[in-house]
């Protein structure tokens, strides 16, 4: 395990650097700039602003300065939210997104794997078909459809749950967005684990387990489930990074102060440091979760440790 971790960390740094430089250049290639508004600024003010943020320097020097500050943990100032640094903005939004995404991930895993298990236990039966049809529907419905439907059913008609806002972290406020965010992921996990279980249940070692007189539940949970989750792990790794760094649609629908809006607004406003900050966070999480997925493979199926 040690060598794998070391190798991954060594490849992570150049990957991150490439992501940063590419995003930096792409942002600059996009037309417009951070100070373009409805009304054009007068050239003198504009030049002063550009100078103040170092945007008038040659590009290589800008990249160099940015990377140098990054090494010191400084993500730079936001160009649009005046008086806020990127670190301030991320520090506000990230805890909200982490909680939303974390709970959604957990719920999706529990729900999805449970659906997969039930379907596999009743393979070919009516439960199986119903569950898999449900899973397809969940994956197919976008969150901007399921979100409002859930609000209507559980919030407005039943009146059980608050429909919008953060409520200072009140769990009830989080329930609907977490559910809406988790459902499509749960559908995908259900289908992947069902398929994985179908393969695992056909294997020789399952027959050995059955030959020991073990009941169907023990066979399923102890002997079949772990290898069946390998495809789930490769899907959940990258999906988790997406969930945790802010679900724009859900955060907008439920008026949550998460990270997602900075992604969108930062890009629209050409707020270069903000976009780069969020991209670095996202890329870092992707790398981290892929590493976790790789470690999981080794646990799910020790043969993969080589």
């Amino acid at each position: 395990m040690g060598p794998l971790l070391l190798r991954r960390l060594l490849t992570a740094l150049p990957t991150l650097a490439a992501v940063i430089i590419l995003s930096f250049l792409l942002m600059r290639v996009a037309p417009g700039g951070p100070f373009d508004g409805e009304r054009a600024l007068d050239p003198a003010t504009r030049a002063a602003l550009m100078h103040a943020y170092g945007l008038d320097l040659p590009l290589p020097e800008q990249i160099g300065r940015y990377l140098w500050r990054l090494l010191h943990g400084d993500f730079g100032p936001s160009l649009v939210y005046r008086d806020f640094t990127v670190t301030d903005l991320v520090a506000q939004g990230l805890p909200v997104s982490l909680r939303l995404g974390g709970f959604a991930l957990l719920l999706a895993l529990i729900l999805g794997i449970a659906m997969g298990l039930f379907a596999a236990a009743r393979a070919g039966g009516r439960t199986d078909h119903a569950l898999m049809l449900g899973a397809t529907l969940l994956t197919a419905l976008p969150t901007f459809v399921t979100g409002p439907v859930l609000v209507l059913l559980l919030g407005l008609w039943a009146g059980w749950l608050p429909v919008s806002g953060w409520g200072d972290g009140d769990p009830a406020h989080l329930a609907l967005p977490v559910l809406a965010l988790a459902l499509p992921v749960a559908g995908a996990i259900a289908k992947l684990s069902r398929a994985g279980l179908a393969t695992a249940l056909g294997q020789d070692h399952v027959r050995t387990a059955r030959a020991r007189g073990l009941g169907p539940v023990t066979v399923l949970l102890r002997h079949a489930l772990r290898p069946a989750l390998v495809p789930v792990a490769s899907y959940v790794g990258p999906a988790a990074a997406g969930l945790l760094t802010g679900a724009v649609v859900i955060e907008t629908l439920f008026a949550l102060p998460g990270l997602g809006r900075y992604f969108v607004q930062g890009a629209l406003n050409r707020d270069y440091p903000l976009v780069l900050g969020v991209v670095i966070l996202y890329a870092g999480l992707i790398i981290l979760f892929n590493l976790i997925a790789d470690l999981l493979y080794g646990w799910l199926d020790p043969r993969m440790r080589g």
Partner: peptide, 24 residues
């Protein structure tokens, strides 16, 4: 049958490569 398999019979199969559970 399950109870009988568990109590009275032992099985050895052809493929020792795959007949054991890989993650246990």
């Amino acid at each position: 049958l399950r109870a009988i398999r568990g109590r009275d019979v032992g099985f050895v199969f052809q493929q020792p490569l795959t007949a054991l559970t890989p993650h246990l």
